[in-house]
């Protein structure tokens, strides 16, 4: 389990350091796949129907379906890299280091209790969610912001895994379905933004500023 956590934290830095949009999607897909393995190591019952559903469902959706959707949205769009990020890449990586240190410091402060059996997983969840929020704020391309939203969602999914309390399978499935539909609709918006503004950069969206 510690290996998985290390891999995820390291891939966060790649996510923060890259300017190429396709690389961003690929790293997000990789993180989705790795995250899908996490429930098998954290849940007390190991391979149960429930863990298979949340693990495999998460992998299929975040590792395969959503990256495919995002790649498809980029087809026909003249955008390969983040042109004008609000925060530079070196600063982003520095922020990533700060986020990780803070997250694991908070995780270390959580006492191991029956409610929180895996404090490191809580740290990972905080780390993923904070990196997601950072990406949404620091990047201006719509695709980068969607990846940020995905990371935030990954963080919450991880937080759910870290808890001893299980959701019912119905609720888990519903949440994943909402995520899929959400990203699908965001891809539709990318298409419309590209058609209207001839760019998918959110800096172009300033009609409604006041």
């Amino acid at each position: 389990m510690s290996m998985l956590i290390v891999v995820l934290v390291v891939s966060n830095f790649f996510l923060l350091g890259t300017s190429r949009l396709r690389a961003l999607i690929r790293i997000a897909a990789f993180e989705g796949l790795v995250l899908g393995l996490l429930p098998f190591f954290t849940q007390a019952e190991g391979f149960s129907f429930h863990t298979v559903i949340i693990g495999a469902g998460g992998m299929l959706l975040k590792g395969v379906a959503i990256p495919l959707l995002l790649n498809r949205a980029l087809r026909g769009v003249e955008a390969y890299r983040e042109e004008k990020p609000r925060v530079g890449y070196t600063t982003s990586i520095a922020a990533g280091i700060a986020i990780s240190v803070l997250a694991f410091w908070i995780g270390a402060a959580i006492p191991r209790s029956p409610l929180f059996p895996n404090p490191q997983v809580v740290s990972l969840a905080l780390c993923l969610a904070a990196v997601g929020l950072f990406l949404i704020v620091a990047r201006t391309e719509t695709v980068s912001q969607i990846v940020g939203y995905l990371m935030l969602e990954n963080g919450i999914y991880t937080f759910g895994i870290s808890l001893s309390a299980q959701q019912s399978v119905l609720v888990e499935m519903g949440v994943l379905l909402d995520l899929l539909v959400g990203v699908f609709i965001m891809c539709i918006v990318i298409y419309h933004i590209n058609r209207q503004f001839e760019s998918i950069n959110t800096e172009e969206l300033e009609v409604l500023k006041e």
């Binding site: 409610l115 929020l133 949404i136 719509t142 912001q145 939203y149 935030l152 969602e153 919450i156 937080f159 759910g160 808890l163 001893s164 309390a165 299980q166 959701q167 949440v175 959400g182 609709i185 965001m186 918006v189 419309h192 933004i193 209207q196 503004f197 959110t202 969206l205 300033e206 009609v207 409604l208």
Partner: peptide, 30 residues
């Protein structure tokens, strides 16, 4: 164009916002 911009803001802000409410739901079950 203006409605596309409005929709993008609505979708992103509300999705991110409601994601926080899910943490509340998780804590409720804890």
């Amino acid at each position: 164009p203006a409605s596309i911009e409005a929709m993008w803001k609505y979708l992103l802000l509300c999705s991110v916002g409601i994601a926080f409410a899910f943490v509340g739901t998780l804590l409720l079950s804890v």
